[in-house]
Structures are given as C-alpha cells and as structure tokens.
Design a protein around this nucleic acid. Sequence first.
DNA 1: TTCATACATTTGTATATACAAATATTGTAC
DNA 2: GTACAATATTTGTATATACAAATGTATGAA
Lengths: 155, 155
Amino acid sequence: MISLNDILKSNVELPLFKKTAINFIVTSNFFMEHLQSFFKSYDISMQQYNVLRILRGQKGKPANLATVQERMIHKNSNTTRLIDKLITKEYVERSICPNNRRKVEIVITKSGMQLLETIDPELNTIETQLFQSLTQEEINTFNSILEKIRGSQSS
Amino acid sequence: MISLNDILKSNVELPLFKKTAINFIVTSNFFMEHLQSFFKSYDISMQQYNVLRILRGQKGKPANLATVQERMIHKNSNTTRLIDKLITKEYVERSICPNNRRKVEIVITKSGMQLLETIDPELNTIETQLFQSLTQEEINTFNSILEKIRGSQSS
DNA sequence: TTCATACATTTGTATATACAAATATTGTAC
DNA sequence: GTACAATATTTGTATATACAAATGTATGAA
C-alpha cells in the first residue's frame, strides 16, 4: 500500500478535509489488511470470525439468521452462504427452529469455540501492537473522535 | 450498521485496545459505506474513481498498468479488469505502448474528465459533512494519530 | 542467432459480495 | 377453512476480488 506522503506528492495543496478523508481510508485499509492476513492464517475471513464471536456471545442459546445479521459489523447481504462456509469448516451447526419452521437455529460448535480460544489472545496482541505508538490520552481522544464521526450523519 | 454501544452491550468490560479496534472498524465501515453509496449513484466503484484520479494526475501523460497499480490506495490484484470496466464506460482508453510492446498506455478520456469534474465538488461536500462535528484541533489530532498507527508496523 | 531469463499484462479459476427473486412458513381477515 | 399478506431464509445471477498460471515481449549471454 502507498503511503499518504506518496499520494499527496502529486497534489501538493490538498484541502484539509480531503487530506483527512484519504488519511482515514489509507489507514483503515492498512489496519484491515493486517487483520485479514492474520485471519487468513487460520483460513477464515474477518466476517466469519465476527459471526463466530456473535454466536459465542449467545452463550449456548441458538441464534437465528436475522439475529446474526443484525449484530454483524459489516452487514453482509448473504449471511446464509457465510454460515454455509462455517458449517463446512464444522465451526457452526444449523438446524430448523422447532417453534417456527421459517427460522433456523445456529450454534457454534466445540471446534468453533476452540478456534476462538486460539485466535483471541493472538488477536489481542496484534491489536495492541497496532496502537502501541499511541499514548493513553491519544487512544481516548481517538475513540471520541471516531464516535463523533459516526454521530455526524443521520443515516 | 450496528453502533458501538450495541456491540459493547453484550461484552461489558472490553479491554481498551479491543474497544478501540472495533470502534475503528465500525467507523471506517460507516465512512466507506457513505462514500460507496455516493459513487454508486454515478455507477462507479471507489476503486474505479481512484484510478480515474490517478490518470487525471498524469496530466495527459499516459500511465501504464504498473504505475496505476502502485499508486492505488487499495492494491487491487486485478487492475486489468478494473481498467476494462472503465473502458466499457468510455472513461479511459488503452493502447499498446509503442516503445515497449509489453506495456500498455492508459489515458483518461474527455468523458472521464467530465465525470471527475461533476463528482469532485459533491465528494468534497460529503467529506466535509463527515468531519463536520470535529473541531480544527481534533482534525489535526486525528490526522497525526492515523499517521502514528500506520507508522506502528514495519510492513 | 538462439536460448534462458526477466518483465508487463492478461487470463483462468476460485471465492466473496450485492441485490433481487423465489421458496417456504406463519399469521390474519373474511 | 381459504386466500392474502407478512416473515425468514435460500437461491439465482451479476459483479468484484484474490491468486496463480499463461501469454507475449524484451534483454543479455554464449
């Protein structure tokens, strides 16, 4: 990935908002690529990891598809097939809800739980490394700025 | 998309680094989705827009594929087909480089330039709106934090 | 000149994502 | 109970992305 300086080199006087937008995009790509390559070493995607975490959060209670979908960070328009992948890998199981046969019941398997237990401490380390150069105060400021950005729009 | 509070609701005591990572991911998704839906109204992707901007930056001088690729924010492993899409839409033209027939020469068309001229002021407005709730000082802090994050890793 | 190697891009193939339409089930009005 | 709408998920199809292999071209050595 190209650094911000390289990008700016060609357009010397970029307005501050545009520079900030590009900086944000470049940094989030950098961040995501780090995480993705980590997850790839376990042969899952970030989306799949996210679903596993949601299912673990259910604490044994099965989740149906709509619940998973609504709790995903990045709404995926095809959660069925995402779950299919996890079933193939035997990290989750799916069955028809006995109360309402339109719904499905999705649960994380023992193998899925074990995967999370392996991944999580490593992930914590990576996340810590990515923010290691920030002071405690900067971390707090960063969080509040991010929340302000999300709050800035109605949608 | 789900808000950070909703995500945190289930896991009350998240460590600060993890909370920050999730906050960052959620916010960058929010940001990207805004931009993507804007570009979609012009029937192009962010990647395609980015290539058009790179080509405009060449100021008439044709770019070859490797140059475009190296200047892209998000390295796409299939720039050929990305350019194909832009050719279909008649925003760029591609020809074989006469000096070195392995290379191609890619230039933005008049129609592509016009598209950028239409898009750019609207895009500036959107970017400004997304950061509207930040003070000047916060914007500067935000930029320096983002650069620190990118600088935190060797890769 | 001929061969091997490096280079620049394209193509094949697998997987991922987006959106709309289809399927199946349930609830409700009559 | 039948018909119709609402709900929950799946499937079809188009497009996007990732990575490896293939193609075509240039360069340098023998």
